[in-house]
């Protein structure tokens, strides 16, 4: 390797735990979370920030893990589906049949969780604005929307 620093030892805070790992600078958080930390709930779908399957929360904000470098995530609270303690949303997804193949589910659940946390008064337009970030290829989306609406209604 040439005499330049193209990788480094970093500390990431993932699901409230501090993790020390060596990463390449050009490594995406998607790769690091899956391959180095074994967090397989982060699902690759497009590697291009287009589908929302690998959504994780960075300081509570949904971010596509394929569209952020691991070195960028230093200093933030990273949450993956494995770190979601509040089971309200997963339970509502189950109740509403919002899961079929399950591949888009972690991304949808984390995005929905962030929506409910950040915008408990979300109206239909806000729900649309948030959920259109994620592609589901199985359900037709209605069940997912209903899940989110039910939770918002209970919160209100």
């Amino acid at each position: 390797m040439e005499n330049i620093e193209t990788g480094q030892l970093i500390k990431l805070t993932v699901n409230e735990q501090s993790k020390e790992i060596y990463v390449r600078n050009s490594e995406t958080l998607l790769h690091t979370l899956r391959e180095k930390l074994g967090l397989m709930g982060v699902k690759p779908g497009c590697y291009n920030g287009d589908c929302g399957s690998c959504t994780v929360l960075i300081d509570g904000i949904p971010i596509n893990a394929c569209h952020i470098l691991s070195v960028e995530a230093v200093g933030y609270q990273i949450m993956t589906i494995e770190g979601l303690k509040d089971q309200t949303i997963p339970e509502e997804f189950i109740k509403n049949w919002a899961i079929q193949c399950g591949y888009c589910t972690p991304g949808f659940i984390l995005n929905s969780y962030a929506l409910v946390q950040n915008n408990p008064d979300a109206d239909d337009a806000a729900i649309d604005e948030w959920l259109e970030s994620n592609i589901c290829r199985c359900t037709g989306y209605q069940e997912i929307k209903e899940s989110v609406k039910n939770i918002l209604n209970v919160k209100r």
């Binding site: 920030g49 929302g52 949904p62 971010i63 569209h67 952020i68 970030s133 994620n134």
Partner: peptide, 8 residues
């Protein structure tokens, strides 16, 4: 784009 992308 869409909201999650706009977050970045």
């Amino acid at each position: 784009a869409f909201r999650t992308a706009r977050n970045k």
